[in-house]
Design a protein around this nucleic acid. Structure first.
Length: 428
DNA sequence: ATAGGGTTAG
């Protein structure tokens, strides 16, 4: 990307057109450098080249990955104002952006505005995927059925979305039925992604042996995603022995990935094997591998506020920490007891474990949200890792006691908290 | 035929 940007910078201003701008923007998106992509999109708007529909689709993709709802909305209204028609590709990008930014209502609104003949399999798939990671499995299946009634045939990606929906919602029988008939009914041969969905579906549901057997008999070699899915299932269902074996396989496959060491150390710790857990963490340290820190963001009036556990760089950090203590007291008055089983560290007592969970970034983010937004507003939080049991519990309680809807996007899916309940049904 | 774009499992 550095070389590409340097070259792009050598193009004289008057020779830059929508295509050269879009090439560099989509390059950044494909490299996962979404902030840089939006920065360049912004620069493009200040130049004399107006963005066309391809530029918008690329920028929307960056917004989707960042969870940048406000900027995504702006692009949507820009398309309307510039009379850029919403074709299949732009519709897809818009639906995906709204869904990944937590606004399924608006995603559905875009979908409904798309003319029937423009509703490509991709457009349907974008909507179904949205329902999947919002934990709305029934809705995903309903749309899948509806899609077929309109004569649109699913492709491999559509089926991945449907299986993900089944997995996240615990629809084991429905998922199995789709998986075992997909080749016959839709002429789509299961790929590693479909096997991945099935391993996840079975593993989450506690059918670990069945999941493991599927990994053994599938026609391709298991990759890190498959093993990771099985490892997570071992953790949820406390299968220490299998988990330890898989953890070793994963570390062997990717010795530079910090998350694998942490996960494996956690499995050892879950089984009470503190020496093995320490050994895994030591190995990680010796190799100079670092864990990605947990980070939560909340956007308020166009500014994104970022929180990392233990980090005090936010200008209002002391007020925010104090607000969290107030929230915590109020939750405690309403029966909140910390959930400490995810703190798999060799600590002397639970007090130390409590101190750890109370530093988690999403708690600071929600405290800040309560401070800065009006009652009745939905609090939207984005997190780069999965949410821990305690933070999940806290979000449920805050939604009830403070009468606030909370929308939280974690590494893989959405949690929507309302009146003490979460749309994931505690199945995550 | 003719630059750049969307949906995908832990």
């Amino acid at each position: 990307m550095d070389t590409a940007l340097t070259l792009f910078r050598t193009i004289p201003q008057e020779k830059k057109n929508a295509i050269s701008w879009t090439t560099i923007i989509s390059g950044y998106v494909q490299a996962g450098m979404n902030k840089e992509a939006l920065q360049l999109f912004h620069e493009m708007q200040n130049s004399n080249v107006p963005p066309d529909k391809v530029s918008l689709a690329s920028a929307l993709s960056a917004c989707a990955q960042l969870g940048a709802l406000e900027q995504g909305r702006w692009i949507h209204s820009y398309a309307d104002k510039a009379r850029i028609s919403i074709d299949s590709v732009l519709a897809c990008a818009l639906i995906d952006m709204y869904a990944k930014c937590g606004d399924m209502e608006e995603a559905l609104g875009v979908f409904k505005d798309v003319k029937k003949k423009t509703k490509s399999v991709q457009v349907w798939t974008a909507l179904i995927s949205g329902y999947a990671y919002h934990g709305l499995g029934g809705e995903a299946i309903r749309r899948f059925t509806e899609m077929q009634k309109t004569g649109v045939k699913p492709n491999g990606i559509t089926l991945t979305a449907v299986l993900t929906a089944c997995s996240y919602t615990g629809l084991v029988e429905e998922g199995k039925s789709v998986f075992y008939t997909m080749e016959r009914d839709y002429n789509v041969k299961p790929t590693i992604e479909h096997y991945g969905c099935m391993v996840d579906l079975l593993g989450r549901a506690g059918l670990l042996d069945e999941a493991n057997r599927l990994v053994q008999k599938m026609p391709m070699k298991a990759n890190a995603v498959i093993w990771g899915s099985l490892l997570k299932a071992c953790q949820i269902h406390r299968n220490i022995e299998l988990g330890e074996r898989i953890g070793e396989i994963l570390i062997g496959m990717y010795p530079n990935h910090g998350g694998r060491y942490v996960h494996t150390a956690n499995i050892h710790a879950m089984g009470g094997k503190w020496d093995k857990a320490a050994e895994t963490r030591r190995l990680m340290k010796n190799k100079g591998v670092v864990k990605v820190p947990g980070c939560s963001t909340i956007s308020l009036e166009g500014t994104t506020h970022e929180f990392v556990a233990g980090d005090r760089s936010h200008a209002e950090i002391e007020i925010i920490r104090s607000k969290w203590r107030t929230v915590r007291r109020r939750l405690e008055e309403n029966g909140y007891v910390p959930e400490l089983e995810d703190v798999l560290l060799d600590l002397a007592d639970d007090e130390e474990r409590e101190a750890i969970v109370h530093q988690h970034s999403e708690k600071l983010a929600v405290a800040y949200g309560l401070m800065k937004t009006k009652p009745g507003t939905t609090i939207r939080i984005m997190k780069n890792l999965r949410v821990c049991k305690d933070c999940h519990k806290v979000m449920k309680l805050v939604s009830k006691i403070y009468k606030r809807d909370i929308m939280m996007r974690d590494r893989t899916r959405f949690h929507r908290f309302r009146d003490g309940k979460c749309t994931c049904g505690d199945y995550w």
